[in-house]
């Protein structure tokens, strides 16, 4: 990094202008005003964080306040019901979500790691097609989830793959949705392995793949697993694309991968939430509690994993 005058990028000019403005302001300002203003500024910043955290806390409290009455083992054993909300549950939805997630993992782990390895270890960054793949993945990570629903509808449910409105179609749609997240996380983990490790291995006469298999991958596994967990938790909470690829709200049987209707936890929650009776609202809140508990557990595990196995080079 050079900050010399020969690199007078707009950013540097801005920074220099900022520094100059500061200096000039320093020569004018009254110190007493400064103290008050600084304290006020810091307080405002803290307030911003507190508002965000308060939102999180309020969301959790609200879900518990509204859903506590509906929390029971019925949630896990019973199917949905439109007439008896007091005994309705999420069993098909929970099983559907688990199957969806299993499919997502089967798909994204090999392909996500493969794409990341290609981009980090093999791709020549000066080639336009490799840069295209890179930008393309960054863009895909930010494409709205509902668009993946459209993709799933016309390419997986119908069109080339023609799977029909089955669970496997939903799973594949979700997998495509979170694949960019996995690739980006895996790339970061792979990039964090210092080059000296690769060189040390190659200098011993290891081939490129031996080096990747035995040095780079083992060293980046914690980062990759963290990324996969975060991606899976995203897939677990997604409802919008599933609405388009056939996840129905009213499935009373345990869904199967390639035949029959299916549903998922967030879709079922959405359905209960749109009904006006108090009991269904409570049921939706109870479903949210279940989902949040699972997600928080997964996220905490991911963070723990990252901190525990983070390699300091």
């Amino acid at each position: 990094m050079t900050m010399g005058s020969e690199r007078a990028t707009p950013r540097n000019r801005l920074a220099v202008a900022g520094a100059r403005a500061t200096t000039q302001a320093m020569l004018r300002d009254q110190p007493r005003g400064d103290v008050i203003r600084n304290t006020l500024f810091a307080a405002l910043l803290l307030l911003a964080i507190l508002i965000a955290l308060a939102g999180l806390v309020a969301l959790l409290i609200q879900a518990f306040a509204q859903g506590a009455s509906a929390l029971s083992i019925d949630l896990f054993t019973n199917g949905p019901s439109s007439i008896r909300p007091e005994s309705a549950g999420f069993r098909p939805a929970i099983i559907g979500s688990l199957e969806l997630i299993a499919g997502v993992i089967l798909f994204v782990v090999p392909i996500g790691i493969g794409a990341a390895l290609y981009l980090e270890e093999y791709a020549d960054k000066t080639r336009w097609w490799n840069r295209l793949i890179e930008v393309n993945i960054q863009n895909l990570a930010a494409v709205p989830s509902i668009i993946y629903g459209i993709l799933g509808l016309s390419f997986i449910v119908r069109g080339p793959l023609d799977l029909g409105f089955v669970l496997a179609a939903g799973s594949l749609t979700l997998a495509l949705l979170v694949l960019p997240m996995v690739i980006i996380a895996a790339r970061e983990a792979i990039r964090a392995v210092p080059d000296s490790i690769r060189q040390g291995s190659l200098a011993l006469g290891a081939t490129k793949w031996q080096t990747i298999r035995r040095q780079v991958l083992p060293a980046s596994i914690p980062g990759i697993v963290t990324g996969v967990i975060l991606a899976v938790s995203r897939a677990l909470g997604e409802a919008a694309p599933l609405l388009l690829v056939g996840a129905a709200a009213f499935v009373t049987f345990d869904p199967e991968p390639f035949s029959g209707g299916y549903t998922a936890l967030p879709v079922q929650i959405y359905n209960y939430a749109t009904r006006s009776q108090e009991e269904f609202q409570a049921l939706a809140a109870a479903g949210i509690i279940v989902m949040l508990v699972v997600l928080l557990a997964m996220n905490s595990f991911a963070i723990w994993l990252r901190n525990r196995y983070e390699q300091r080079w």
Binding site: P194, S196, I197, Q199, G200, S201, A203, Q215, A219, Q311
Partner: peptide
């Protein structure tokens, strides 16, 4: 052998 010791983890 490299400048900075680079043992594998």
């Amino acid at each position: 052998v490299f400048q900075k010791p680079n043992p594998f983890p």
